[in-house]
């Protein structure tokens, strides 16, 4: 009997918690508002289901609790009722699935004009690479990694010489332009995760993965790693700064190219050996 009351309280408490909870999704900073909408819809549909089922159960518990002289009804099945419940549930599932799949379709269709950038993960920090004046990223391979070439760009590929290398862990992006993030890992699985842009994707050693988004809000955002990658996993942080096109350009010109970085490393090396 008290369980019937507690069930009602559990439902009421859950709803109350949902309404009052200060822990909500971060303000969105990308084009993926549809993801939030789909989640909102899912909440409404499933929340209604939860409340209905548990309240119905609470009612039964109260109404049909054992009392002297009560005897249960005998009803092995009721195919009509079961069929109806099946149909209603199927409709609810379709309502959730249809918009979800539509948005997924957008998620995996990268706009043609997206700017390609590369994020590289290594235990436990982030580096980035942007295309240089030729607007193309050069090829890369783990084989080429050495102290003067930490991202493993192919030294012979002319497309890579002008690539901009960002090893400070701070990525700048222009507002309002779609970006395709190419993801590459040098050691283990990582995952490029910025809560405010909603999208995320794993970095898998051996292959290049990608996802895309359009930044929609100027600001500074934290990049986390969302695939467990060893003891330093929580410390694997980067920064994503979304700024106006002009600011972005200014930042870009201040970055070192692959060619420059090799030269300065080489001259440092000769200086070191001369001493």
């Amino acid at each position: 009997m008290s369980i019937a009351i507690v069930m009602v309280l559990v439902v009421a408490g859950s709803i109350l918690f949902h309404v009052l909870s200060p822990w909500r999704a971060t303000p969105i900073a990308s084009n993926w508002g549809f993801i939030d909408d789909t989640m909102g819809l899912t909440f409404l549909v499933t929340g209604a289901g939860f409340v209905a089922v548990i309240l119905f159960m609470a009612y039964c518990l109260y109404r049909f609790r054992h009392e002297p002289g009560r005897r249960a009804a005998y009803e092995p099945e009721n195919q009509k009722l079961e069929a109806w419940l099946g149909i209603v549930t199927t409709i609810a599932v379709v309502i959730l699935l249809a918009p979800g799949l539509l948005v997924w379709g957008q998620f995996i269709t990268v706009p043609k004009d997206a700017m390609e950038i590369e994020a590289v993960g290594v235990q436990w920090n982030w580096s980035f690479r942007l295309a240089g004046v030729d607007h193309q990223l050069g090829s890369s391979d783990v084989r080429y990694i050495d102290t003067t070439n930490s991202l493993g760009l192919s030294p012979a590929d002319p497309k890579g010489q002008d690539d901009l290398l960002v090893t400070s862990g701070e990525l700048h992006l222009p507002l309002g332009k779609p970006v395709k993030v190419l993801l590459r890992s040098i050691d283990v699985l990582h995952d490029f995760y910025v809560p405010e842009i909603r999208a995320k994707m794993d970095l898998v050693p051996g292959i290049v993965t990608n996802f895309w988004f359009t930044p929609t809000k100027i600001g500074e955002y934290e990049i986390l790693c969302a695939a467990y990658c060893g003891t330093g996993h929580p410390q694997m942080r980067g920064k994503m700064i979304i700024e106006s096109e002009a600011d972005f350009e200014k930042w870009q010109t201040a970055q070192q190219t692959f060619e420059q970085s090799r030269k300065s490393d080489a001259s440092r090396d000769t200086r070191a050996s001369a001493q």
């Binding site: 993801i35 499933t46 948005v103």
Partner: peptide, 14 residues
């Protein structure tokens, strides 16, 4: 149903 619906899983996974 959130986590199974692929696009909703994207922000929630991990």
């Amino acid at each position: 149903l959130y986590l199974g619906n692929v696009i909703v899983d994207v922000p929630l996974s991990a």
